[in-house]
Amino acid sequence: MELSLATRAVAEHAVLEVGGEVDVYTAPRLRERLNELIDGGARSIVVDLNRVDFLDSTGLGVLVGAHRRLRPLGGRCALVCDKEPLLKIFRITALDQVFPLYPSVEAATDPSGPTA
């Protein structure tokens, strides 16, 4: 399935809903969209991965790249994911220690604080 990207605002957060397959062919489009959001002033980006069917190292590299760009700007990149196969990928690569991971967009954007 092709990559799909949709952006919406939830309070001060930019929520990027990603669907389909994120791999070496499609990851550049994800990088481009994340860079557009950061260049446009977004400082809290929530990437919703719950409709992603496939995610590989190039996709993970793009997410880490966004995290690295946001950190010195005082921003953050949070991920939404409740699919076990994807969560296993984050555990194996230890990237679950790098990103805040939430089960839902609501949890990631909860103004009362992290609920992951």
């Binding site: 190292s57 190039t58 993970l60 590299g61 880490v64 990928i89 194996i92 690569t93 230890a94 990237l95």
Partner: peptide, 17 residues
């Protein structure tokens, strides 16, 4: 670098799976 990071993550996935 982004390239080194992606290679490292890719190898972690291969070794892990």
């Amino acid at each position: 670098t982004d390239e080194a990071l992606t290679v490292g993550v890719g190898f972690a996935l291969l070794a892990g799976f």
